[in-house]
């Protein structure tokens, strides 16, 4: 990396990104005002902004954001814990992994969306069915990464720790878990994203609260402005979650060397 030119390059990039955004929004607004786009189907940025502002002003949107956040968080936590647990069990017990290998493959290959109605049936319209749905998405990503992470641990590294006096529990805590964590963290964006997808899609299919419900509701009323406003709130939400994940990742992976690709650029 050529230091010095980096901040300028970054500012240039940010400015270009902002310009693209402004241009697109302006084009949309103008096209809609000139009736090139039918406002009934396409709404317009100013109306969308106004709606979003009203939602926040009246406070009615907060409960939806809260519910979606809660579902996302729970799906992520439960899916990750299960994934780490089962991933470890499989990696440390070849017998277990041989027996269950075909089941895991089939379960992972199945389009999970078909489960959503069943979960609604089992767990009702509340947050539980959304969490369960999100868990089925998150679980496999974390599971595969944990399994890989544990299997990839270098034999010499393990032997070195053993020679230094590590018990099996020490190995788990100081070598195997951190090693798996590297892999799990590398998929953190994906798994958090999937937890969110699970929550929103679940809400969309049947619920009384949440950002997915908000969008679905507007859609049912042919309220295009409402749909776009819901999408804007969702996009903002995703952005915030992603920033949070990035900062957690940066903190936990601070020991990592910068990737060679980044260095070469």
């Amino acid at each position: 990396m050529r230091s010095g030119s980096v901040p300028e390059a970054r500012w240039g990039l940010r400015a270009t990104q902002a310009a693209v955004f402004v241009l697109l929004v302006a084009a949309w607004e103008v096209a809609s005002r000139l009736r090139w786009l039918d406002p009934f189907f396409f709404s317009r940025p100013s109306s969308v902004a106004e709606r979003v502002a009203r939602w926040f002003a009246s406070g009615e949107v907060y409960v939806h954001i809260y519910v979606t956040s809660l579902e996302t968080l729970l799906a992520f936590l439960v899916g990750s814990l299960l994934g780490v647990g089962v991933g470890f069990a499989f990696a440390l017990s070849p017998a277990l992994s041989r027996v269950f290998d075909p089941y895991v493959k089939v379960a992972n290959a199945m389009p999970r969306i078909v489960l959503a109605p069943i979960f609604t049936l089992w767990f009702g319209l509340g947050i539980l069915s959304k969490v369960a749905f999100g868990v089925t998405l998150v679980f496999f990503v974390v599971f595969f990464n944990t399994y890989q992470g544990v299997r990839e641990v270098d034999r010499n590294v393990l032997n070195n720790a053993r020679m230094l006096g590590a018990t099996d529990r020490d190995l788990l805590r100081h070598v195997l878990l951190p090693s798996a964590l590297v892999w799990i963290l590398s998929s953190l964006h994906t798994s958090v994203g999937l937890a969110l997808v699970g929550a929103v899609v679940g809400e969309y299919l049947g619920s009384a609260r949440g950002l997915g419900y908000l969008i679905h509701q507007a859609e049912a009323l042919f309220d295009t402005t409402g749909v776009f406003a819901g999408l804007v709130v969702l996009a903002g939400f995703v952005l915030v979650v992603d920033l949070l994940v990035s900062s957690v990742e940066r903190h936990l992976l601070r020991w990592k060397p910068p990737s060679h690709v980044e260095e070469a650029l």
Partner: peptide, 21 residues
Amino acid sequence: QDVLLPWKTAEENVMLGLVFR
């Protein structure tokens, strides 16, 4: 081979044997 734990600092790597004890 290189067998230091990459997620531990030099100091943490050196003290590993004592932590195990």
